[in-house]
Design a protein around this nucleic acid. Structure first.
Lengths: 153, 153
DNA sequence: GTGTTTGCAAACTTTTTGCATGAGC
DNA sequence: GCTCATGCAAAAAGTTTGCAAACAC
């Protein structure tokens, strides 16, 4: 991602937060910086560990991800097992649409940019859910589970 | 699902458990019965609440889902938000391949039987992940998020 | 009879809340 | 100056573990 795009994204996030009367403070900015640089969903503990000491308390990380997830700036993605807590990543408007590869060996999650499902298939399944289940599909979430190159050996 | 299929499924589960030296006891059978009758993924708390009083302690429900998930009899599916704990359902060999509708209004999760992604699309994306990411896809997990008929109004 | 499984109590982990202090507009 | 945000401590929720008694085979 180019520098210009990053700057633009930061501005969009600042606007999404500020528009609703919330402040983009030091701890909040620090959490966003970590997630923007990560390229994969992170747990609260991992975010906190990645912050330089004293930039934010764990409690503030919790409050930040809850607030920002509510604003749609962050998105919660499922972990691999019950032992692993929830992970957060930038929301779709900011990170772009993408899917996840989940390695069942090591638990690593990798992003795959773009959509792997052809648009007309998506349209077809949305229409089918609407007709047969009275369910209006607005988003989808595809995870491919398997083995990464390292675990395969 | 017909009675004959249910009986067959119970036998397959009993075999999967017994073959590996574990016993299919009262509490374990009770948990399986609840999940087999549910048609949607359930949290540990929900499973426990659905059990008739004194059929199993919460701790035993935890131990049971962990054991059975390890054996592949149960499968863990992601909840809707961080507040909601993990949910369990029968594993694919026993429940059949299916996807989930997740209502963002009420949090309800519904099963959709069968696969919504055309087989050749799946084959194509698996091959692509193998070539470009050295990742061998063995399973996939599709969730359609949106609004159910009740919440829509 | 032997080894597994259960229930209870307690520990542990993760996440939320109350409250006084401090920072942003 | 007023309000929102932070840190600390404590509480609450969710999940796991140790151990003696009960159960399955």
């Amino acid at each position: 991602m180019s520098l210009a795009m990053k700057v633009e994204r930061s501005a969009a996030i600042a606007s999404a937060v500020g528009r609703r009367g919330y402040r983009l403070t030091g701890p909040r900015r620090a959490v966003l910086d970590v997630l923007a640089g990560a390229g994969e969903p992170m747990t609260v503990a991992a975010i906190h560990a990645a912050l330089r000491p004293r930039r934010a308390n764990v409690v503030s990380v919790y409050r930040t991800v809850n607030l920002l997830a509510g604003l749609g700036v962050l998105r919660l993605t499922p972990g691999v097992s019950s032992r692993q807590p929830a992970r957060y990543e930038l929301g779709e408007p900011f990170a772009g649409h993408h899917h996840h590869l989940v390695c069942q060996g090591c638990g690593r999650i990798e992003d795959v940019a773009g959509c792997l499902i052809p648009a007309d298939d998506l349209a077809r399944m949305s229409q089918r859910m609407r007709r047969t289940r009275r369910f209006r599909v607005t988003e989808h979430d595809l995870r491919l589970l398997g083995m990464c190159g390292t675990c395969e050996q």
